[in-house]
Design a protein around this nucleic acid. Structure first.
Length: 527
RNA sequence: GGUCUGUUCGUCUAGGGGUUAGGACACCAGAUUUUCAUUCUGGUAACACGGGUUCGAUUCCCGUACAGACUACCA
């Protein structure tokens, strides 16, 4: 009969009983990926909803994987999506510093405490010795060799070595690590807010390294110590941490912090659209959509990856989309601002299964948010694009352009990309449309229309239309027969927004000029 | 391999012992638009499988399958 550790939910069973303090704790090993943004978002929503505190902690205990610029990138990304940090790196706060590398000196005492109380031990094994142990175990048929309650008795550590030997090894500054002495036969339980009770037998947990030989703590120790010290009430993180959560529970117990243990919530993972595995940083730009919030240039590999921002996604659309990947309000409402989300969010309604990333839905959200903006705001996007093209545009023209394009765009850059003909005359014409629609008759009618327009004294969409009506009825044909050809002549394409409005926007002189060019160019092609 | 987690339309999901299994995205069709887009209307499409429990199971239980995560002195 194994001794059981019945670790129940911590005392803050109900969110309201304890001040809500949550943290987003990325490690600066590269760009923040979109799954990380969602994790941060859920933390933020819980914090805001409960008038709590959102903390940003940087977990940079692995110096080898540190990437310069990553931390700034993370901060900028959170800022862009609208997640405000109350406390932490870049902001400061009562529990500073918030960068683990700067907290280095704080961890050893806790590891030491564990050693002193017999819950951890020094291990002097070299890499070669560890490899040898694993190899021999593998040879003996053990599928996955671990440093655990059985194998530790054969290794060089403070449990197998004599006290004097340990002392002299330490005095000689022999490199060592501190490992957790995981009990042999105990049941570790935790009550996850999303998954319910999760039980793991301690024999399945290996003697994890707590302090590395470089004096830095590993994730497990640093995370638990900092969460305790920073009075974190809820740990909301990705499901990839679920397997090591029991280890963390053990750590809380051994450190005597069981009653202050935070509530855990392990989020379902964001999966690749192809369905094989979680979305990872390496997928950047590989799947036809961004995976990082902002453009990112890897300083080591010098590879550039497109961000959601640069791809034209609005932060509020991205937030809405991300929030719905794994959570829903239980109603049919889909459009949620950040404030709406804060009001409606609940950890209980977070799903359990991983969510495949579907960029179509993100595009739909973007379209919805883009359309909801005023013409003045949208004109701003257009002007930005035009500036890049060195095209100047009067404000009232920009407003008109935006109003006829509004229902057709998904991204801000579409105003320019799909409305280019409103600024630049076409030099080529869609050949399939030309082949189908352009003929002697259309040339004749358009010639007549051009003349009619040229003689006008004033010009707008209505006049353009009535003029066309007069010209066509004089020649005895219907407008429908000629309109495609006229559109082709004006825009170069067979589709687009209302042609009369297009003509109004480009103006009478430009219409005449374009028709002239079309008449010459298209005639040559046909005959 | 082991441990853990999961499995409702193609995708995100609602629901939950008796429902025509609901919505959204995507897709398809029709209407509108002289075009395309928009808009509107409609449509295709799902409870992984096998055993229980039950009058009845997609819903509860147990298995199986499949998927994913983890299994580093990485986080």
């Amino acid at each position: 009969m194994p001794n059981s550790i019945y670790i129940c939910s911590p005392k803050n069973e109900f969110t309201g009983m304890r001040e809500v303090r949550v943290r987003f704790a990325p490690s600066p090993t590269g760009a923040l990926h979109i799954g990380g943004v969602r994790t941060a978002l859920y933390n933020y929503l819980l914090a805001r909803q409960n008038k709590g505190t959102m903390i940003l902690r940087i977990e940079d205990t692995d110096q080898a994987r540190y990437v310069p610029g990553a931390e700034e990138y993370i901060i900028k990304s959170l800022e862009w999506v609208g997640i405000k940090i109350d406390e932490g790196v870049g902001v400061g706060g009562p529990y500073a510093p918030y960068r683990q590398s700067e907290r280095k000196s704080m961890y050893l005492q806790y590891a030491q405490k564990l050693v002193d109380e017999g819950n951890a031990y020094y291990a002097f094994d070299t890499e070669q010795e560890l490899d040898a142990m694993r190899d021999s175990l593998k040879a003996a048929g053990v599928a996955l060799p671990q440093y655990n309650s059985i194998t530790r008795s054969q290794m060089r550590n403070s449990l197998t070595l004599l006290e004097d030997e340990v002392k002299s090894l330490l005095e000689a500054k022999t490199p060592y690590v501190i490992r957790l002495k995981v009990p042999r036969k105990e049941e570790v339980r935790l009550n996850d807010m999303i998954r319910g009770w999760v039980m793991v037998h301690s024999s399945q947990i290996d003697d994890k390294v707590l302090m590395k030989s470089d004096g830095m703590p590993t994730y497990h120790l640093a995370n638990v110590v900092d969460d305790y010290l920073m009075k974190i009430s809820h740990v909301i993180r990705g499901e990839e941490w679920l397997p090591s959560a029991p280890l963390h529970v053990l750590l809380y117990k051994f450190l005597g912090w069981e009653s202050d243990m935070p509530q855990f919530a392990h989020l379902p993972l964001l999966l690749k659209p192809t369905g094989d595995g979680k979305l990872s940083k390496r997928d950047a730009d590989q799947m036809g959509f961004p995976i990082f919030p902002l453009d990112w240039v890897d300083p080591v590999k010098n590879e550039k990856a497109t961000g959601f921002r640069e791809a034209g996604y609005l932060p509020e659309a991205l937030v809405n989309f991300l929030a719905f990947l794994g959570w829903n309000p239980g109603t049919t409402q889909e459009i949620f601002s950040m404030d709406d989300l804060i009001a409606a969010f609940s950890v209980e309604r977070i799903g359990k299964a991983g969510a495949k990333f579907d960029i179509h839905k993100a595009q739909w959200f973007n379209q919805q948010y883009l359309r909801a903006k005023s013409n003045e705001e949208l004109a701003h996007y257009l002007q930005d694009s035009l500036k890049e093209e060195n095209i100047s545009c009067a404000p009232d023209k920009a407003l008109k352009v935006v109003s006829i394009m509004k229902e057709r765009v998904t991204f801000p850059k579409d105003f320019w990309e799909q409305g280019r003909f409103l600024f630049v005359a076409p030099t080529t014409f869609d050949e399939s449309v030309a082949a189908k629609k352009w003929n002697e008759e259309s040339a004749r009618v358009i010639g007549a229309y051009q003349e009619a327009v040229a003689s006008l004294t004033s010009f707008d969409a209505n006049i353009a239309k009535s003029t066309l009506e007069i010209v066509t009825s004089n020649l005895g044909i219907t407008i429908g027969k000629i309109l495609q050809s006229l559109r082709l002549s004006i825009t170069g394409a067979g589709m687009g927004p209302d042609l009369m409005m297009i003509m109004e926007i480009i103006g009478k002189d430009e219409v005449v000029k374009r028709l002239d060019y079309a008449l010459k160019t298209l005639r040559v092609k046909v005959s």
